[in-house]
Design a protein around this nucleic acid. Structure first.
Lengths: 160, 160
DNA sequence: TATTGTTATACTCTATAACTATA
DNA sequence: TATAGTTATAGAGTATAACAATA
């Protein structure tokens, strides 16, 4: 009879914190507040598209946005249509492929997403304001590497 | 005329990684895979309730589960009903308050959630297997503190 | 014949409102 | 009168399937 399996206690203690953090950030007041500051609607989908375009720092195709956000194409199609109506993005022909369109931020869109991200990231910087500089740098560095490694590891899982 | 605001570049570079990580973990194959290993349905809600009960390590009231998961009461009511039908949790009277019920894992439920979490956390441990021990410890420590600080900071935002 | 994107539709997750029972 | 939980309903978020245009 096999010993009953127990999850690792150190990682187990992190889990509820991450859950709570993730829920608080995605569903809570924080994003709502930052979106208000920027004069943007506070739905996650459109904010995700705008943020993706801003961090890419260049026009992206619908499929590229979908891939970066890890969602399916039709979701992006609708978000882009709504954003275009609001004058925040523009669709231009892709010179290399007539099937595709490149999505780019308008000036209005770029300004709004800058206000949004400045408010959001500023808030996180505030939360870390009392930390020793070394710890802050370590967290940012390790978190980035962690995300990259997990993503890589995941694509291997998807292949099998 | 004010200088246009620019978000902090170091935090900005972390953002798409976190988004991708979060999406891959919550919607991707990972949770699905771990749930399969444990013989559990792969819906996020019920897995969240089971995980919350396991990490609390004691019976919780519906309201307590909702608070820890940062969702509203009715959501938990339905999850608990479904889990009870599947024999994974049990509702017992709260000796201190006849309005409330305490939700606790059955033996079957406890075993299943242990298998689930062992698989899930084991997978993360694998992704970190090549890291220097110091970096791993730092990440777990800093991440836990970060989550706590952000949560605290957030409740202040909710008051204003 | 494969790929990019769109339209139409359906499902999952979560919230709000109205209600019951107990404090 | 306030609180714990439930029932019923509605909305946001995301996926799947079928299709059009171009490669």
């Amino acid at each position: 009879m096999p010993e009953p399996t127990e999850p690792r206690p150190d990682l187990l203690s992190v889990l509820p914190r991450i859950t709570r953090l993730s829920a608080a950030v995605t569903r809570g007041r924080l994003v709502e507040h930052a979106a208000e500051q920027a004069g943007l609607a506070r739905d996650r989908g459109s904010l995700g598209v705008l943020t993706t375009l801003r961090t890419a720092d260049k026009p992206l195709r619908v499929g590229e946005i979908a891939e970066r956000m890890q969602v399916v194409g039709p979701h992006i199609t609708r978000q882009v249509q709504a954003l275009e109506k609001r004058g925040l993005v523009r669709r231009v022909p892709d010179p290399h492929d007539a099937r595709a369109r490149l999505i780019e931020l308008t000036d209005t869109g770029a300004e709004a997403v800058n206000r949004y991200l400045t408010s959001l990231l500023g808030w996180f910087a505030d939360a870390l304001a009392d930390w020793p500089r070394q710890d802050r740098d370590d967290l940012v560095r390790l978190l980035a590497r962690f995300a990259d490694d997990v993503t890589t590891h995941l694509s291997r899982l998807d292949e099998s």
